[in-house]
Design a protein around this nucleic acid. Structure first.
Length: 570
DNA sequence: GCGGATCAC
DNA sequence: TATGGTGATCCGC
C-alpha cells in the first residue's frame, strides 16, 4: 500500500494523536493479548500498533469526530507547554521550602498508611466477551466482538488482529474482515454479575462493586476467622466463581484497593497475584510502573506528567518540589500517595451506596429539525423519569446537555426552586436551553441530548410523591408514559409529525390526558385536581382521611411531614 | 452555583 | 459505513 506523504507526516510514531487513535485500552492495559505472548515489547509490537493506528487514522481522518479530537489534542498540548514553562520558572527560583513540605507530606503518608488489610480486586477480563463465549460455544474459535456501534469487548483472537475495546465496529471490521459481531445482552451480564456477587458474599459480605465487571473484597476478617491465607482464600473464591458462572476471573491481592487493582492486571485474564504488604516490596513494585497504569491518571494527566519528565511512579518523587505549584494541593497529595503505594482500605458496601445523580443521554441521527429534537428530548425526559421512579428520588438540580455534529457539547445546569421528577417538569425546564443552543448554531445539527438530575432527595415524603400516589390510586393507572407515544411506536416517519411547543398538541388517550392534566396542575395547586367535593381527602403520609378543606389539609400535611421527618432521624 | 474537563468502566 | 452511556469529581470562576 502506498503511503501518501500526508498521512506519513501526520502520524509519526510517538505522536500524541497516534496515541489517542490506538485507544485508551491499548495504552492503559499495555496492548494485552497482542504482546502478552511475547516476552518483550519488540519491534513487531511496534509494527502492529502502528498498523492499528494507521488503519484507524485512514478510516477517521475526514470525519468531524477526527477534527474534534485534533482540536482537543491541541488544547492538551498547549496545557502541557504552559506547564513546562511554569516548571522552568520554578526551577530558576528557590524550591527548598516546597521540597521540605513535600518530604513532610511523604513522612505523614508513610506514618499513616495501613498495610494490615488484605484487599482483593476481582476483574472479569473482557467480561462481555467471556460471557458470550461461555453461552455460545460456536464463538470459541472465531474472532468476535460484543458491541453496538463501538466494540465493548472482544476475544483474544480478535485482539490479535488489532481489534480493541472502544473501536468503532466499522473500523474493527476493516482490521479484521471476518469479525463476528454480537449484540450486547446486558440483562445476561447483570445476571452473571449477580452470581459472582453471591459467590463473594461468603468471603466478605461488605464487598464493593465497581462498574459492571469489577469488585473489591476485604478478606482480612475471613482469613483470621478461619485461619487461612489470603492466597488460598482467593483461590477458592475464584474456583467458586468459575463453578457458578463458568467464566474465569483474575484477582489481585494487596494492602489496598489501588495496589490490588494493579496487581490483578499483572496476571490477566486468568490467575491471581499477591503483592506482599511490606513497604520495601511495595516500593520496588511501584518503582518502574508507568503512571498511566494507575487508576485516576488518564490520558490527559499522563501527557501533562510526561511533559515535565514524569513517566514512572518513581519519577514523581524526583519532581516532588514542583508538583504542588504545578497541580495544586489535591493532585499533589494524590501523586505522592501513588508514589508510596497508598490507597483506600475501606470498602463501600454495595448495598449502602446511594446514587448522587440520575441521567440519560442519547445519540441519534443528527438533525436540526426542531420537532424531531423536541421529540427526542421528550423521550430522554421520560427515561429519566422512569429512572427516578425506580430510585424513588426527585432532583433539585437539572443539567441539560446538547452535543452538535461537530462533537462540541454545551451544557446548562440549573438549581430549581424544588425537586422535580416528572417527565413533564424535566422537559419543560430543559426545552428552552435545547432550543436556544440549537438555534444559536444555525449551520449545525444536533446529535445528542442529555438530561441529568442531581441533588437527589428522597421522594418518600415529598408532596409531589404523595400526590402521585394518590393519583395512581384514583386512576388505577399502570406506569404509562405521561407524555404519550414513544418514538418507535410512531406510525409516521420522523418529521411528518408536527409537535408544537404546546404539550396539548400531543395526542393522548382520554385517560392519559386526565392523568396528564392532573400531574400538571399538581405543580400549581396540588389539591385542586384531587379534590372531590364533600368527600374526605386521604392524607398520603398517615393514610387517614381528612376534611375536604384545603387550608386545613395543608396544615395537617405540614404536621404529618415534619413528624415523619423526625421519625426518620430519631 | 455553574460550566467545562477529566476519569473509569 | 462512520466514534457510547453513566456516574463521579475537580478546577476555576
Amino acid at each position: 500500500m502506498a503511503h501518501s506523504t500526508g498521512s506519513n507526516q501526520a502520524i509519526k510514531p510517538g505522536s500524541t494523536l497516534l496515541k489517542s487513535f490506538v485507544g485508551v485500552a491499548a495504552i492503559k492495559k499495555g496492548y494485552e493479548g497482542v504482546d502478552r505472548d511475547k516476552a518483550s515489547h519488540d519491534e513487531s509490537t511496534t509494527v502492529q500498533s502502528m498498523r492499528i493506528a494507521r488503519t484507524v487514522y485512514e478510516a477517521s481522518k475526514d470525519s468531524l469526530y477526527f477534527s474534534h479530537q485534533q482540536k482537543r489534542d491541541q488544547a492538551i498540548t498547549e496545557k502541557c507547554n504552559a506547564l513546562v514553562e511554569r516548571k522552568r520558572l520554578l526551577e530558576e527560583s528557590d524550591t527548598t521550602s516546597q521540597l521540605v513540605h513535600a518530604d513532610k507530606v511523604v513522612a505523614r503518608l508513610k506514618e499513616n498508611r495501613d498495610l494490615s488489610q488484605s484487599i482483593v480486586h476481582i476483574d472479569c477480563d473482557a467480561f462481555y466477551a467471556s460471557v458470550e463465549q461461555h453461552d455460545r460455544p460456536d464463538l470459541k474459535d472465531v474472532p468476535f466482538a460484543v458491541g453496538d456501534t463501538v466494540v465493548a469487548a472482544c476475544n483474544y483472537i480478535a485482539r490479535k488482529t488489532g481489534c480493541r475495546a472502544g473501536m468503532v465496529i466499522a473500523v474493527a471490521k476493516k482490521m479484521c474482515p471476518n469479525l463476528t459481531i454480537v449484540k450486547p445482552n446486558h440483562d445476561r451480564y447483570r445476571e452473571v454479575m449477580a452470581q459472582i456477587c453471591k459467590a463473594m458474599e461468603k468471603y466478605d459480605p461488605g464487598y464493593e462493586i465497581c462498574g459492571t465487571d469489577e469488585a473489591y473484597l476485604n478478606i482480612t476478617k475471613y482469613c483470621t476467622e478461619f485461619g487461612t491465607k489470603p492466597w488460598d482464600v482467593v483461590e477458592s473464591l475464584r474456583k467458586d466463581i468459575r463453578h457458578e458462572t463458568g467464566i474465569a476471573v483474575a484477582a489481585g491481592i494487596a494492602a489496598n484497593i489501588q495496589l490490588a487493582k494493579i496487581s490483578s492486571t499483572f496476571i490477566k485474564p486468568d490467575g491471581q497475584y499477591q503483592l506482599p504488604s511490606e513497604p520495601d516490596i511495595i516500593m520496588a513494585f511501584i518503582k518502574d510502573l508507568p503512571v498511566r497504569k494507575v487508576t485516576g491518571i488518564g490520558y490527559t494527566l499522563d501527557r501533562q506528567l510526561a511533559s515535565i519528565g514524569i513517566a514512572t511512579c518513581d519519577d514523581i518523587f524526583s519532581q516532588r518540589q514542583f508538583l504542588r505549584d504545578l497541580f495544586g494541593d489535591r493532585l499533589f497529595e494524590f501523586l505522592l500517595e501513588v508514589y508510596l503505594g497508598c490507597g483506600r482500605t475501606e470498602l463501600q458496601a454495595t448495598l449502602e451506596q446511594q446514587k448522587k445523580s440520575a441521567s440519560i443521554e442519547r445519540t441519534f441521527k443528527e438533525t436540526s429539525a426542531p420537532d424531531i429534537i423536541e421529540r427526542n428530548l421528550r423521550t430522554v425526559c421520560e427515561d429519566v423519569e422512569a429512572k427516578l421512579k425506580e430510585l424513588n428520588r426527585a432532583g433539585q438540580t437539572l443539567t441539560v446537555k446538547v452535543k452538535m455534529n461537530d462533537f462540541e457539547s454545551y451544557s446548562k445546569q440549573m438549581k430549581l426552586p424544588k425537586a422535580i421528577s416528572s417527565a413533564r417538569d424535566i422537559f419543560q425546564h430543559s426545552l428552552p436551553f435545547v432550543k436556544a443552543t440549537v438555534a444559536s448554531k444555525p449551520h449545525q445539527a444536533c446529535r445528542l441530548l442529555g438530561v441529568r438530575l442531581t441533588q437527589l432527595v428522597s421522594k418518600e415524603y415529598t408532596l409531589s410523591a404523595a400526590f402521585q400516589r394518590m393519583a395512581d390510586r384514583s386512576t388505577h393507572s399502570e406506569s404509562d408514559s405521561l407524555l404519550g407515544v414513544k418514538e418507535k411506536e410512531l406510525p409516521s416517519p420522523a418529521g411528518k409529525r408536527k409537535l408544537g411547543d404546546n404539550l396539548e398538541s400531543c395526542e393522548l388517550s382520554p385517560r392519559k390526558k386526565k392523568l396528564n392534566l392532573a400531574t400538571e396542575s399538581s405543580e400549581i395547586n396540588p389539591l385542586e385536581s384531587f379534590r372531590c367535593p364533600s368527600e374526605m381527602i386521604r392524607c398520603p403520609i398517615c393514610d387517614q382521611d381528612q376534611p375536604p378543606d384545603n387550608v386545613l389539609f395543608n396544615q395537617h400535611l405540614d404536621i404529618c411531614l415534619s413528624l415523619s421527618e423526625i421519625q426518620k432521624y430519631s
